[in-house]
Design a protein around this nucleic acid. Structure first.
Lengths: 330, 330
DNA sequence: CTGAAAGCGCTTACAG
DNA sequence: CTGAAAGCGCTTACAG
């Protein structure tokens, strides 16, 4: 049951292979009648072009690689961030008639596999997701010459074009809200400090505090709920008198809420809590979470656009604003 | 900057293209010295095989399609199910040196695109995730002749080999636990009734109740948190005297918890709640959730294995047991 | 507007 | 064990 080829379609339609190719690829310069005959033959035979043959000559694959560099801890958690980004990127690429090849290297061997895969031109471009500063992959990918863009500001030495949200501004808004609510001792639970989202949200927090002559008090988390609970416990030990916490992710805020409840603190009465992300679960925490909304899907769409329009190398980063959503926790 | 081809490597090593091909593909029948020379040439030139040329002749692509048929509502939520399955499948496939092409068709046009893609032999096999009974895609994919397996028992007329968890048994265990705890009026919040996970968990609930001469009381959800809250409100209206709820997913259970709190019911004192999944967030609800743990990653690994070992058509389904995890909510 | 022909970069019988 | 040659199924200048 060999599948029909261009050759077979040409024979059936009584034209050359070149003509069939033109029709199949939508070239304008084909006589309408001949086009109709070819289309009929394609239909009758159930012809579908062989992608390998096609890309052998065109040197394009129609596929885009989505590389997620994230240790399992976070992706295995119920962090909705990845689902949302992956889903949105997938939809945008579908609209552009591209396929998405998902790569989540989980070891050095996996990384070099990704590198070879991209260098071998299996994909026409790659989108980098959640880069860590120590990750050697971005630089390696950039060297392949394949177009690379980053979802989130890169922190490594490799500097692909990127899109991101205003992490610093979002953190500032959160802390200013806490200050305006009369909070005196505001702690922070940070994200990983080798990621721009972790770094920038911490920077925003610090800017506001130091601008108001206050000291910072931070504990490091990794964006997961567990790490938020741990960090909260530590913060409570470091300074039992704290009356507010800014967590760099909603999941960590949710973990903090849990730890606070265990410690017998009331939220927001004793301690106010602000998160970051505005995930779907934010309105279901107890109490509902005040948080900084970031337009995750918009950034995902923008990064696909950036890759597809191929403003190679020189593209300016596109930064989206965040918005403070006030609920009951602060 | 044309990349080096087999030809170039052959010239440099002073052998034929066939020989280079053999060493690159690890054929045993090559003289060690010649092999070494070829390897050196490969290295010096930075040779990487052209995948399109290779698959044009071998008729294999090294890629597996992962098709997720799920309306955005659920995938856009913070349901960790997809992340976990995708991640695990991706890891298993990486270990087998396969790439994963992620396809989340979001429209009929997207579906036929997927169909054409698979029919065009862009992938060597496909894994179906979260099928709905009304979905015409599984049957279409099966017709392409490409190996297809399903993660979760299929409900459509199309019957690919599959792996799943014991949904009926898990639901039974949950309801029996509630009964053993002295609950009299046990309601259920079901998943979508066009999915086997929704159907089977409801069946388990019903079996136990009717076996004990009790009536069922169910409200339909779609596995999301919001739908769980809505269903809970409706259930409370239908029968204010209920003293327990079995929710077919943890996310729905979390929504139910929220609705119960709003309605002034104490958990577990007034109403006991049991979920299904044991997602990471289950221990962070208030109170921590009693639930049925399902081995999501194990199923994902099994389905990859099933596809790779290619027990075409005739493979028996592999069903994994679930486990009741008792916490504070019931 | 259409066709004959070259060529994309590999693998694999087939000889030797 | 190794090489010459055919062939995988397309696209694309180049003529006409």
């Amino acid at each position: 049951m060999r599948r029909p080829t261009l050759e077979a379609v040409a024979a059936r339609a009584g034209v050359s292979r070149a003509t069939v190719s033109r029709v199949v690829n939508g070239s304008a310069t084909v006589n309408p009648e001949i086009r109709a005959a070819v289309l009929r033959a394609v239909d009758e035979l159930g012809y579908i072009p062989n992608p390998a043959a096609r890309s052998l000559v065109t040197r394009r694959t129609g596929s885009i690689g989505l590389v997620v560099s994230e240790p399992p801890a976070r992706v295995f958690s119920d962090d909705p961030f990845f689902s949302l980004v992956v889903r949105t990127v997938s939809q945008e690429l579908e609209a552009a008639d591209k396929q998405v090849v998902l790569m989540m290297p989980s070891s050095p061997a996996g990384q070099s596999r990704v590198e070879r895969y991209v260098a071998g031109r299996h994909v026409d471009g790659v989108i980098l997701l959640s880069q860590h500063g120590s990750d050697p992959l971005p630089a390696a990918l950039l060297r392949t010459g394949v177009p690379v863009v980053s979802h989130g500001r890169p922190v490594s030495t490799a500097r692909p074009p990127y899109c991101d949200v205003d992490n610093v501004g979002g953190a500032r808004a959160a802390v200013e809200h806490l200050l305006a609510g009369g909070r005196r001792r505001i702690a922070a639970i940070t994200g990983p400090l080798d990621m721009s989202a972790g770094l920038d949200r911490l920077a925003g927090y610090r800017e506001v505090l130091s601008g108001n002559g206050r000291r910072s008090l931070a504990a490091i988390g990794d964006f997961t709920r567990e790490s938020g609970a741990d960090a909260m416990r530590q913060l409570l030990e470091d300074d039992p008198g704290l009356d507010a916490v800014f967590a760099a992710s909603d999941l960590m805020a949710s973990g903090a809420l849990h730890a606070l409840r265990r410690a017998g603190r009331r939220v927001p009465d004793d301690v106010a809590v602000v998160g970051f992300d505005d995930i779907a679960g934010a309105r279901f925490t107890d109490p509902p979470l005040t948080t900084v909304r970031q337009p995750i899907a918009e950034v995902a769409r923008a990064i696909v656009r950036m890759l597809l329009t191929g403003a190679d190398g020189g593209a300016d980063p596109e930064i989206f604003p965040t918005e403070l959503i006030v609920r009951d926790s602060a």
